[in-house]
């Protein structure tokens, strides 16, 4: 029964995506071109990486509001390590990824060791990490990265934008982990009933630590791709990213209360938001209209999905 209703939301979402695709391609002739759709992948990358791991976080019944700030902090660390400390760029990338992962791990420690609810812990670190980014950067942006570095955010492989390969890889990897591995089952079990999971021998704290660290890693990877895409580093990068990621995850049917959700759903959620932003713009709708449309689609999709699920249950 449960699996069936989960399936249902993704089906409905898929249908909404198809409807949106059809309407938008009729409304705007430039929309349904390979060029445009691949190009949208570039804009989708950062929020996708974060949203994929955010799915795990929310499935455990947690939330990570600090991802946008971790993105900003990692970007600044990358720039400072490379330009100010003079590290070779590959090493600076490693440092930035480590700092992001550590920032996520720190969230995990506050949440598991000190039993601070995730929302509160990450609200606090949202302020902290953004503050560190501002302090370290002294509000200076860092530029002048070598040409090869832009391959990541502006280049392509076999005609497909580089970062799309990375997103595809992570989508498959996270989808596989959440669906088929013990880690994935542990994630669901924690979200469904943490106490029960603990008693049935699942390493709850370890799993959570790992997930929050992964969330930090995803945000810092997104930071590096973002820096490569826009060829500059600023401390205010990624502001508001957390809400975009959460929107995609909940639109994808993941329950904010935990225990339920899929990577497929998040994937469709991401796609739907991006094609709305792009397609409506191409069809001549201004961004204020697009905001309204995304808000309505978010509410209506879940409304329809809930109605169907309720009928099937009742």
């Amino acid at each position: 029964m449960r699996m069936k209703s989960i399936f249902r939301h993704e089906t409905i979402l898929f249908l909404v995506v198809i409807v949106a695709l059809v309407i938008l391609s009729i409304q705007a002739e430039q929309f349904a071109t390979i060029d445009n759709l691949l190009n949208q992948g570039r804009f989708l990358t950062e929020v996708s990486l974060v949203a994929l791991i955010m799915t795990f976080v929310i499935v455990t019944g947690g939330i990570d509001l600090s991802v946008g700030s971790i993105l900003g902090l990692s970007a600044i660390v990358l720039g400072v390590a490379w330009k100010k400390l003079g590290l070779p760029l590959p090493l600076a990338i490693l440092v930035a990824l480590s700092v992001g992962t550590l920032a996520g791990l720190f969230n995990g420690i506050i949440i598991t060791r000190f039993k601070v609810p995730p929302l509160i812990a990450t609200l606090a670190t949202l302020a902290l990490y953004r503050g560190l980014a501002e302090g370290i950067s002294q509000a200076r942006s860092i530029r002048g990265y070598p040409e090869w570095f832009f391959i990541l955010g502006q280049g392509e492989f076999f005609g497909i934008p580089t970062q799309l390969w990375i997103v595809a890889f992570f989508t498959l990897l996270t989808g596989f982990i959440l669906t088929y591995t013990t880690w994935g089952r542990a994630t669901y079990a924690i979200g469904a009933n943490e106490t029960a999971a603990r008693f049935s021998g699942i390493a709850v704290d370890k799993t959570k630590l790992f997930i929050y660290a992964a969330s930090g890693f995803a945000a810092s990877l997104a930071a590096i791709i973002f820096v490569s895409r826009v060829s500059t580093t600023r401390s205010d990068m990624g502001m508001g990213l957390e809400l975009d990621a959460i929107t995609a995850v909940v639109l994808g049917g993941t329950s904010i209360f935990g225990g339920k959700g899929t990577i497929v759903g998040t994937f469709f959620g991401l796609i739907l938001i991006q094609i709305l932003k792009n397609g409506l713009s191409l069809a001549g709708v201004k961004s204020d209209g697009t905001y309204i449309a995304i808000g309505l689609v978010l509410i209506l999709t879940l409304l329809i999905s809930n109605l169907f699920n309720r009928n099937s249950e009742g």
């Binding site: 508001g240 792009n278 713009s281 905001y291």
Partner: peptide
């Protein structure tokens, strides 16, 4: 002429919008 911009002074949203208009031609 028409004006279209992000609702917050955000580098990413601005880039995305300009890109959309390039596609639109």
């Amino acid at each position: 002429a028409k004006t279209d911009g992000p609702s917050e002074a955000n580098i990413d949203d601005q880039i995305t919008l300009i890109d959309n208009y390039i596609t639109q031609g």
